[in-house]
Each structure stands twice: as structure tokens, then as C-alpha cells.
Design a protein around this nucleic acid. Sequence first.
RNA 1: GCGCCUAUCGUCUAUCGGUUAGGACAUAGGGUUUUCAUCCCUAGAAGCGGGGUUCGACUCCCCGUAGGCGCGCCA
Length: 440
Amino acid sequence: MSVRVRFAPSPTGNVHIGNIRAAIFNWLFARHAGGKFLLRVEDTDRERSTPEAIQTLLQVMEWLGLNYDEVPVYQAAQRARHLAAAEQLVTSGHAFRENKDGKGECIVFRMPKEGRVEYTDIVKGTIRKKAEDTQDFVIVRSDGNPVFHLANVIDDIDMRITHIIRGDDHVENTFKHIQIFRALGDEPPQYAHLPMIVNAMGKPYSKRDGAAFVGEFREQGFLPQALFNFLALLGWAPGEDREVMTRDEMVALFTLDRCKSSAARFDLKKLIWMNGEYIRQTPAAVFRAEFEARVKADGYWHTDLPAAEVDGIVALVQPRTKFYSEIPGNCAYFFTEEYPFDAKSVEKRLKPAGVPELLEAVAQRFEALPAFDHAATEAALRAMGDERGAGLGGMVHPVRVAVSGLSDGPGLFEMLTLLGRPRVCARLRRAAARLREGTL
RNA sequence: GCGCCUAUCGUCUAUCGGUUAGGACAUAGGGUUUUCAUCCCUAGAAGCGGGGUUCGACUCCCCGUAGGCGCGCCA
């Protein structure tokens, strides 16, 4: 029988990283096996399941490249089918009607009370408990609506799901689900319960731990490939010390028996590192599009910059970018004369005595240069550093801060060349003037 | 409270009874560089505790401890 798995989120407007990680594992499993990856939208909560929420869900999946097969199933549309199954269970004696607490008549599923229930979880091994430790549970509410457990199982039957890969907060539910499958005369599918993702404190990862939703990572400028790769490695390891992998490699390597069963902490530092790896691999044109979007959103962008200059900026910025949202703060000086100055850098590099004179002397020297390029500017600063006994560093640091407002960034001479002589000299003189006025 | 699950460097993990317990992130130091990033080198850093089983346990079993999950007419 060919593999059929599903991702069954309830659309609430935000997709939690724990859920999307489950989707990733399902997807990898299906693609590895050459099976089907299906989407089932569990939209029975009419309050939260808005069209916008469903759109968000679909967008997130597309962004991460989680393409699904077949037509998505909307659980709310299966209501009649769920209720029919409940009737069938009543008829066969596996369920009964009851008026609990006077709330009206609901349908309760009867759990076996003798022996033990067990199942073999692909990642957790055999899980068993005494039947007496399980309890009957409601499958149709007194308002006539099917409950999660019922709907979930019926849909899995209808979709001919072969493997259920989900978070391990469902291990207990599985006992219930298995009994429903059997009561309906179906063999339960295979189960694989994934460990939870926890925060730095070892507690379940939530909103309070920073970004918890996929959309937030996207906004911060994480690449889908990086997030995908990173999340895939939370609870799974292909062995052989493989970490940064292409999607195809992950598909080829993925197996459930290499999944761990203990909780994994979300290490943002490692995600940031990995994202940097992916950004450096990104084609320049792709990076440039995102770069432009980010700078525009921040208001610095102007369209009259020659394309070649933008290319130059991108070439300097891309190699040192870890995530896109840090771009505007690092690049303002490429686009405006009103670039902000970092207070600490000003204090350290521009406040010392003699700096205004030094900046003006540099401007003068630069203006006298026959050509304003990397070699010439470097030679000029080296010479001045020697003359003044300040060394190259003594020249470079004040100039960098004066010209960019920051103490770190691309190589200074690449930066100067890109900015061009007029802008560089004007900035040096203006910084000197402002230092004298005390407005810096 | 009852039940189920889990337990290797700070973090993600490798190890399927025999290893100097390996890799990556992070950290520290060094090299390259004008800064940052990259790149390279180096260092420190781990088997929760106690019993077994075994010639030999991180690995298997039991107990304890800690944590997680579940115990809804939520999903």
C-alpha cells in the first residue's frame, strides 16, 4: 500500500512552528516514500476558521515549499459523514446515547475495560496502558456537533491515511483513536509521535518566547529553506554529521526511525547561523529583490541610484547578512546623507581630540588624488597613517564612522569607492564641522 | 492525584554492548583582514542518581529524581 500522510492543522490565522515542523516531517516522509502528502483543514471551529486564516495557512505552506497532493479536505464539510459514523457506532453497540449533567443527549464512545491497549509507535516504540485506565469519551456533543476524535478518525479513514505523524501531545489520544478505527472495522494506521519543541527554559515553545509563528520568521527575514532545514533537524538527524542540506538531500535521507523521542529546544542562534549560510548561497538577483524591498519599506530607497551602484551595494552587503530585517539598519548610508550615527562608535572614533582636523586632512588628500579607487584611497590612508604615526587603523576607523555612521560594515575602500569621491569628501567635511559644533 | 512518555557537552545531535564518546551552533583564544562577516586553527565543554544483567555498559532491565504530555460535550 502506498504511503498517504496528512497535515491537519486548524486554521487560526497563525501557524505555530511546532505545527509546521510536523508538516515538514510529514512532507519529507511522503516525498521520501514517493507517497502522497495531503492537506486537511480542520475548520470545525467556525469562530477561528476564517477565510483569511485559511489563506494564511496556505501561504505559509507555499512559502515553505510544502506542496500537497490532491484536493484539500475541509473537515467541516464532512459533518454528515461524521454523524453517520456515530450512528453506526451506536447501532453496533460501540457507543451509546447519554444525557450527562442534563445538557441534553450526546453520544459517548465506549472504551474497552479489560486487558490492555497498545500500539507500536514508529518513533517512541511500544506504548501501552491498561484498558481500565482509559475512559469513555464524547464523540457527538449534545448540540449535534462531532468531536475532534471522531472527525479526525473518520477523515483519516476516508482519506486512506497510512501513517499519522504528529506531535507527541497526541500519544494519549491515540488509544481512543485506535478503538474507533477498530469499532468501525478498520485497521488503525501507523503512528509516529514527534517530540515537542521547547524554549530556552525547557517549557513548551509559545508566543512569549519570541517568534512562535512562521509568519514572524518570514518578517524577520529568515529564508524558507533555512527555516525548513533548521526545523527538520529538531528531532531528526540523518547521521553522518549532515546538517546543511538541500531539500532533495533531506528527502533522500529522511526516515522516521531516525527521529528522536525527546523534546528539542529551539536555538535561535543556530537558526541565525544557518540562515546566514543560506543567504550567502542565494543568487545575487534574488537577494537584491529582497534587499530592495526591505530598504524601500524603511524609507531610504531612492530609485535614481544607477543599477550598477545597487549591484555594488548588494555585493558588499550580502556576504555579511544573517537575516533580512537587519539590512535597513546597516545600509542607510548607501542611500541617504541623513544616515544615523551610532552613538558608541562616535564616542570611540570621532570624539578623540584632533579627529575633525584629521577628517578634513583626509578629505583634502582624497580630493587631490588622480584617481579615486580602492588602491589609491588605501595608499593615501596608509601614507597618512605613517605620517601621523597613527597607523592604518588610526585612519580607517574615524573615516569609517564619519562616512557610514557605523563602526562595522564592508571593507572601507570598497565602501569609499562605491560612494564616490564627492559624497565621501562631503561627508568627511560635514562630520568634521558637526564635531566642532558639538552636534554629533 | 492517576496514567503515558522522556533523560549524551550551554543548545541541536551521532553512538544501534567494546570509541581517546564524534560533529554542528554558541563560547574563549589565535591566524587572515581597516572594522564586521567570511575563512582557517586551537581550547574548554556531556552520558541525571542508584542498583542490576554482562567479560564489558551512554547503549539492555529495575528503582529513584527531574521534566513533558494527557486525564473537556477544546482541537
